[in-house]
Design a protein around this nucleic acid. Structure first.
Lengths: 203, 203
DNA sequence: ATGTTAACAGACCGGTCGGTCAAGTCAAGC
DNA sequence: GCTTGACTTGACCGACCGGTCTGTTAACAT
C-alpha cells in the first residue's frame, strides 16, 4: 500500500514545510502555492492529501503537539531531576530553542500554538478547541510536576491545577514578550520566576 | 482648516472601525474593503487618509495605546489605592472588559497588542518595535507600582524592573490562555497570582 | 496483459486582495 | 468670482488567494 519513495514522503514534506512556515510567519500570511513550492509539490498533490488549508493547519498542530510531547517536553518533565529543577530545565530548553531559531532566521518565531491561538481562535472554533487541548496537555505536565514537588515536600501545599495553568500562562507570556522584543534572552531573564508563581488551595 | 462634520470625522470613523475589527479578528483577516464598508467610506477616501493598510495598523496601535493609557490603565494604576491592590484592580478591569466583549461578540478578543505582536512581529520590524514600545510603557506602570510597594514596606525588596516585565508577561499569558479557552473567568482565576511573581535583585 | 487505484501534474476558476487614478464636489481665502 | 486644495467618488488594476478539474503516471492485484 504505502508507496516507497527515496526521498521523504510527500505528505510529510508538506507537513514539515508548512509547520516551519506557519511557525515563522503566520497562518494567513503563508499561501498554499508557497507551501507547494517549498515542498516541491504540485497543487493537485497537495489537495490529494489535505482537503483544505484549514485541515493542513489542524494536521500541523497535531504533528507539532506530538513532536513536542515526545521531544523537549518529555525531556524536560520526565527526568529523574527534582521536580522544581525540571522547570528550570524547561525554561532553558525553551531559551535554546528560540535562540537557535533566532540565530538561523534572524527572528524569534515564538510558540506555534500561542501564535495560532491568538491569530485564529476568534474565527475557528475547531482550531481553537484543538489548541486548547494542546494547552491542557501541557498544563497536565506542569500539574504532575507540581504534585510531585508537593508530596516530596519541596513545595508547600497549593492548588496544583490552577498553579499549573498559571505557569503555562506565564511561559506563553514570556515567550510573547521575548518575541515582541525579538530577544530570546528575555526568556532567560524572566523564565526562572515561573517557580515563584503560587495559587493557594481554595477550601 | 479642519473640516467640521456633523457626524464623526471620517478618519476617526475608519480608525475606530479598524481597531474593533483588528481586535476581534486579526490583521490579515480584515480587508480594506471591509473596513471601508463598515465605516461607510469609499476606498479612495481611505487612501486619502492612510497611505497603506500597514500605516492604518500603526495608527490603530497608537490610538489604542492612547486610549489604554488614559483609560483603564490610568484608572487601575493611578489610584490612591495601596500599590498591591492596584494589581487586583487591574486584573478585575481586564476581566470585566473581556467579559463584556465576550458577551457582546460571543468570543474573547484578547489583547489587541498581544494579538498583533504574535501575528506580525516576525514580518514587520517597525510594527514590532511599536508594539514593543507599548509594552515598555505598560511595564513602566508596573515598575512604578512595585517601587511604591517596596518603599511603603508592603513588599520585600526585589528587582522591580524585571518583576514588572514578568508581571506584564503573566498578564499577557493569562489573556492568551483565556482567549484560547474563550472563557474570561480564566482571568479571574489566574489573575490574582500575578502578585506572587518575584524576581530578586541581582547583586 | 489488464484493470484498478493512489499519487502526482498543472492548467484553470471566480473572487478578493491591497492599491491606483482620473474626475468631481465643496468650502474657505483672496 | 475665481482659485486652491482638502476631501470624496467609484471604476479599475495586476497579483494572488484557496480550491477545482481533467489528465497522466506508476505500482499493485488479478
Amino acid at each position: 500500500m504505502k508507496r516507497m519513495t527515496l526521498e521523504t514522503d510527500t505528505r510529510t514534506r508538506i507537513l514539515v514545510v508548512a509547520r516551519d512556515m506557519f511557525h515563522g510567519r503566520s497562518y494567513a500570511d503563508v499561501g498554499i502555492q508557497e507551501i507547494c513550492e517549498a515542498a516541491r509539490v504540485q497543487k493537485g498533490s497537495f489537495y490529494h492529501f489535505f482537503p483544505s488549508k484549514r485541515d493542513l493547519a489542524l494536521a500541523v498542530i497535531d504533528d507539532m503537539a506530538d513532536d513536542w510531547a515526545h521531544g523537549f517536553v518529555a525531556e524536560a518533565f520526565d527526568q529523574g531531576l527534582p521536580p522544581l529543577e525540571r522547570l528550570d530545565y524547561m525554561i532553558d530548553a525553551a531559551y535554546y530553542w528560540q535562540k537557535s531559531a533566532a540565530d538561523l532566521e534572524g527572528r524569534m518565531p515564538g510558540c506555534l500554538f500561542g501564535n495560532l491561538a491568538l491569530e485564529i481562535s476568534t474565527r475557528d472554533d475547531v482550531m481553537r478547541a484543538r489548541l486548547n487541548a494542546v494547552f491542557d496537555k501541557a498544563r497536565d505536565k506542569f500539574r504532575v510536576t507540581l504534585d510531585q514537588a508537593v508530596t516530596s515536600g519541596a513545595l508547600a501545599a497549593l492548588n496544583t491545577e490552577a498553579t499549573a495553568s498559571a505557569m503555562l500562562a506565564y511561559l506563553e507570556g514570556v515567550i510573547l514578550l521575548a518575541k515582541t522584543r525579538n530577544d530570546p534572552q528575555v526568556i532567560q531573564l524572566l523564565g526562572p520566576a515561573i517557580k515563584t508563581l503560587r495559587i493557594e488551595m481554595s477550601h
